[in-house]
Amino acid sequence: MQAAEILEKLVGFRSVVGLPNEDIVAWIRGYLESHGIAVAVLPGPEGDRSNLFATIGPMDVSGYILSGHMDVVPAAESGWTSDPFRLRAEADRLYGRGTTDMKGFLAAVLAAVPSLAAMPLRRPLHLAFSYDEEAGCRGVPHMIPRLPELCREPLGAIIGEPSGMRAIRAHKGKAAARLMVRGRSGHSSRPDLGLNAIHGVAGVLTQAVAEADRLTQGPFAHVFEPPYSSLQIGTVKGGQAVNIIPDSCEVEFEARAISGIDPAELLAPVRKTAEALAAQGFEVEWQELSAYPALSLEPHALLAALLEELTGLAPLPAVSYGTEAGLFQRAGIDAIICGPGEIGRAHKPDEYILVDELLACQTMVEALGARCSA
């Protein structure tokens, strides 16, 4: 099958983040097994979602991981000019949810499988396809610890997030959390009898804004834009009516960290202020939503040199968005980002990828196979 045909199949699966993904996993598994590739389906703790791992080539030596996620963000936003879960071709553009982020990479890799399977590979290529990346990389942490039983220690991992087929060596880490504060309701004319949850949260919001301002003063890593870590309040929900004392308030926070800083630690002062509300009689719950570390691959790393050789382009030093690459690196596996499409097309109506971008990615994967056969 051509890459565009495979992409049509993949886009047709509504593998939206947080939902069951049995259908897309089964199709990919069947496709790989039809080419004689052994596949391991690795169910996550949710019970209805799985990671997938497969090896092409010898099992007893180290090779390279080609990593991508099977989930996509929802497509409920207005502005789509066609069904987002049905691939539409128009000139050299292929439209559909996930075409760029990142089923295009999966399709290009799968299109290369027949060629790879026919090569005399001396080093293996591993396919590591995850779930729920769009919820903060929740799926791949259940696959990475199982790699020692699935393969020899990898030489590196190529994460195929859209990068214009130019390798990227670094990205920021991220942590997100939800705060839920419960007070006591009542009529607004008797505030002395209630416990206003929004009033309680106000001090936490002030603390978060102060922390966000403080982070702009450094430390700095000038490969990023902005060159410092950041923190923001993403959502605030609470109250029913102006004359009712609000008995609950929910806030979501996000922190993004430059290399060398734990993003969860950036939220620690906010959490401390929130938990202090318990002394005032509030019920406080702090829930971590997601967390993944930054990626930082050295400029002269062998993996960076390999990707420059395969693409003909010098790697970019960094991007500010995050990927699963930092999790691979934290597990001791060198990782780098390189995939088809442009990140600016992702998460918006009429997401698309170019046919030539798919072919360029397939060519890169096949060139990696040829190098592993030398």
Rank of each mutant, 00 (worst) to 15 (best):
Y64Q: 14
F105L: 11
G312L: 11
L313W: 12
A176C: 12
L121G: 03
E342A: 13
A157H: 06
C338P: 09
R146M: 14
S290T: 10
E149F: 06
E357S: 14
M165Q: 13
R214T: 01
S373L: 08
P141V: 00
P263T: 00
H347C: 04
L310P: 11
V17D: 06
V251W: 05
R122Y: 01
R123H: 14
P74F: 07
V109A: 14
D92Q: 09
L150S: 01
V181E: 04
R330C: 00
S34F: 07
H142G: 06
Q2H: 12
A89I: 04
L121E: 04
A40Y: 01
A111S: 14
V242W: 15
P74V: 11
T363L: 12
W286A: 05
P219Q: 00
A157I: 04
R166M: 12
L316S: 14
Y292D: 03
D247A: 15
V270Q: 08
R371M: 10
A202K: 15
S15I: 04
S230D: 06
E283N: 13
G104T: 06
A112Q: 10
S259Y: 03
M59S: 15
A257S: 13
L179Y: 09
F220M: 05
G312R: 11
V11I: 15
D92L: 04
P114V: 07
N243W: 13
P219N: 08
D262Y: 02
